[in-house]
């Protein structure tokens, strides 16, 4: 199981992660980021891609 953490102090809700892993990250009706905090190991590649595209580098994968 993968544990995902987004530092909401850093996050600016740019939404780039949503393109990479839409099942984990989404923008709500107020354009604010919401995410699922755990994911199956098979989702690692897409979550790493989401980490890579975050301009604020706010996403952490806790192995």
């Amino acid at each position: 199981m993968l544990k995902i953490y987004v530092d909401m102090e850093k996050c600016q809700h740019y939404g780039q992660c949503v393109f990479e892993a839409p099942d984990i990250f989404k923008l709500n009706d107020d354009d604010k980021l919401e995410y699922v905090a755990t994911a199956d190991d098979s989702r690692r590649t897409d979550i790493e891609s989401a980490i890579d595209v975050c301009p604020m580098q706010a996403i952490v994968l806790q192995d």
Partner: peptide, 8 residues
């Protein structure tokens, strides 16, 4: 500036 969902 802002309007993220439109930009997306």
């Amino acid at each position: 500036i802002g309007l993220t969902s439109t930009l997306m």
